[in-house]
């Protein structure tokens, strides 16, 4: 979700293996890849691109912990402080009976929290319309994009050459 438009030079590849080799080559040549787009998750791509592992599971753990504690402590508070009632001669603090709800609320908090976090950090949500480079990227094309806003003619030509050399079927410029 960029405010101003960016000039993007991108190449479309037909196969994920060609794409992986191209990304590897770009890294060796120290080219600054803006982003890589693909119709499905390409395995090994995140390592080659040097993406750090997603920390979304850590967030999930924290949300789960919040859910777990709030459910358990709330039930404890209700049955020991706020309105103690004896059910079937059991103690007010009958921790075992709190387990099912504690578990469910833990899962609920972790899942909802993680999903909301995922869409937020990806800049996605209902009705959000992020610009896309090519309609075929969600179909059968794999795309390497370079930011060429501040690149001069020769730099652009070199990038074009790189894309064609590594097997890109099409090379285009688009401002998004």
């Amino acid at each position: 979700m960029k405010q101003e438009s960016t000039q993007v030079l991108y190449g479309l590849y037909n196969d994920e293996e060609v794409l992986l080799h191209a990304v590897k080559k770009a890294k060796e040549d120290h080219l600054d890849i803006m982003d890589v787009y693909s119709p499905f998750p390409v395995h090994g791509l995140d390592n080659i691109l040097g993406l750090t592992e997603s920390r979304i599971h850590i967030a999930g753990f924290i949300y789960g912990l919040i859910g777990c504690l709030s459910a358990f402590l709330f039930m404890t508070w209700v049955f020991t402080r706020d309105w103690p009632i004896i059910f079937g001669g059991k103690p007010y603090f009958s921790a075992l009976a709190f387990i099912p709800i504690t578990f469910e609320v833990t899962v609920l908090f972790a899942s909802v929290g993680m999903v909301v976090t995922f869409y937020t950090i990806c800049g996605m949500g209902p009705g959000v319309d992020n610009p896309t480079l090519d309609d075929r990227i969600t179909d059968d094309k794999f795309c390497i994009a370079f930011d060429v806003d501040n690149a001069d003619e020769s730099k652009q030509a070199a990038l074009r050459q790189f894309l064609t050399d590594t097997g890109a079927e099409e090379v285009n410029v688009k401002s998004i």
């Binding site: 982003d35 998750p41 592992e53 997603s54 599971h57 990806c122 009705g127 992020n130």
Partner: peptide
């Protein structure tokens, strides 16, 4: 589709999620 672009980082997070 929530503005899905197919970016590598999004796919990585999507798989983790």
């Amino acid at each position: 589709s929530f503005g899905w672009t197919g970016s590598a980082k999004h796919w990585q997070r999507w798989e983790a999620l």
